[in-house]
């Protein structure tokens, strides 16, 4: 499946990456070649095959409903770019 300029722009926007036209063109090229390689998958008959999401056939273990974590806000916010009054700040979100 070929990849178009607009596919790359769309993926760039969904992934919140800033791509100018030159970037996008370069990626159309790169991604095109990668997808061409990936396209070998298309010829494989997998009608009778179930998808495999995890390499082991294990099942989810459940955690007891206990509060085990306590306030470490100041510690965690030491690596934060911008906080005030315990809140992380971002440019105004328009609802």
């Amino acid at each position: 499946m070929a990849i178009e300029h607009e596919d790359v722009s769309r993926a760039g926007h969904l992934a919140r990456l800033e791509l100018d036209d030159a970037d996008a063109s370069r990626y159309v090229d790169d991604l095109g070649r990668i997808l061409e390689m990936v396209d070998q998958l298309q010829g494989v008959d997998t009608d009778q095959v179930a998808p495999l999401a995890h390499p082991l056939d294990a099942t989810q273990r459940l955690r007891a409903d206990e509060v085990t974590e306590f306030d470490q806000r100041d510690h965690f916010q030491r690596c934060a770019p911008l906080v005030e009054e315990g809140l992380y700040l971002v440019p105004r979100v328009v609802e």
């Binding site: 499946m1 990849i3 596919d7 790359v8 769309r10 993926a11 760039g12 969904l14 992934a15 990456l17 990626y27 991604l31 990668i34 997808l35 990936v38 998958l41 298309q42 494989v44 997998t46 095959v49 179930a50 998808p51 495999l52 999401a53």
Partner: peptide
């Protein structure tokens, strides 16, 4: 970008699901 594209609508089954089947 590759991951975002292959998971996006219209491509998911052909890429992601198929890759998971091949993984099996």
């Amino acid at each position: 970008l590759i991951g975002t594209h292959t998971l996006s609508e219209g491509f998911f089954d052909a890429y992601y699901k198929q890759a998971q089947k091949v993984r099996r």
